[in-house]
């Protein structure tokens, strides 16, 4: 029989293995981004900033970074606004087919990305905006809004319904209540939703590849470099993307979980 102590140790080893499994590829990529050898092989060569220098001096990468940032900022803002409105409708009102409405609002992430991407490409060409930066912003807004809604909805569900009535009762109009009560209450989740949808947009490849045209985002550029040849530049770009996304996700988590809502009973 296993005693308690050995179970604890087995679980620790298991946890360690899971982390190794998840993070090893990423760590490898980061390590090789500082490695002087052209091909990713062991033993390692010497430490170098060479690949980062190359990326830094490559205007195409800078264009991609700029596109990615513009798209991520715009899409996260739009997705969060839409997500907030959907979540607030759910919190405030009861109507027929509300469940259908919510299911529809949460639908996009359940559709296979490649299908969503094809559909968007077809639709955007019809509208004549395919290949423009707008196309990518709209696509990423659609993709991000359900995440934003889910996060903000979670927060609003923890809100005492009387809080809104109390604000009216103290002389706040509906708009003032939104401004001074609902939004301040939901603020941690709004920041969290902004960061997460930004991360989703920054990372997203499939749709971007289809609809971005000449406005390539970072993931698209990575694939293009990779298709040409094996170039450690992609390790450098990858490390940068990883750092950005992780920062956003960590900020989102901090706002989501450390600011526990205070309910007054």
């Amino acid at each position: 029989m296993l005693n308690d102590k050995s179970i604890v140790w087995l679980l620790r080893i298991y946890l360690l293995l899971v982390f190794v499994f998840i993070f090893m590829p990423i760590v490898t990529s980061v390590v090789f981004s500082f490695n002087s050898d052209r091909f990713p092989s062991l033993p390692l060569g010497h430490f170098t900033w060479n690949w980062y220098d190359k990326v830094y001096n490559d205007p195409e990468t800078w264009d991609a970074i700029r596109t990615s940032i513009i798209v991520a900022l715009s899409a996260s803002l739009l997705a969060t606004i839409i997500g907030f409105c959907t979540a607030y409708t759910d919190f405030r009102y009861n109507f027929r087919f509300k469940n259908a409405y919510l299911a529809l609002a949460l639908l996009p992430p359940t559709i296979p990305l490649i299908i969503l991407a094809l559909a968007m490409l077809a639709w955007f060409s019809k509208l004549g905006i395919s290949g423009q930066i707008w196309a990518l912003i709209i696509a990423h807004t659609v993709l991000g809004a359900p995440f934003a809604m889910a996060i903000i909805r979670l927060r609003l569900q923890q809100m005492d319904k009387d809080l809104e009535s109390a604000a009216w009762n103290l002389g706040a109009s509906e708009w003032a209540t939104m401004r001074y009560v609902i939004i301040p209450f939901a603020l941690p989740s709004i920041i969290s939703a902004l960061c997460l949808t930004m991360a989703v947009s920054f990372d997203e490849f499939a749709i971007a590849w289809f609809v971005s045209g000449l406005n390539k985002s970072i993931p698209v550029v990575i694939l293009e470099i990779l298709q040409g040849n094996v170039d450690p530049q992609i390790n450098a770009i990858g490390s940068f993307v990883f750092a950005t996304t992780m920062t956003l996700v960590v900020i989102a988590q901090l706002f989501l979980f450390t600011k526990k809502p205070t309910t007054i009973k």
């Binding site: 005492d160 009387d162 009535s165 109390a166 009762n169 706040a172 603020l187 205070t262």
Partner: peptide
């Protein structure tokens, strides 16, 4: 409601936690 001068003390108190 917001045009009236009839403030209410709530059972849950409904104080603004933020």
């Amino acid at each position: 409601a917001h045009e009236r001068e009839t403030p209410l003390v709530w059972q849950t108190l409904a104080l603004f936690p933020f």
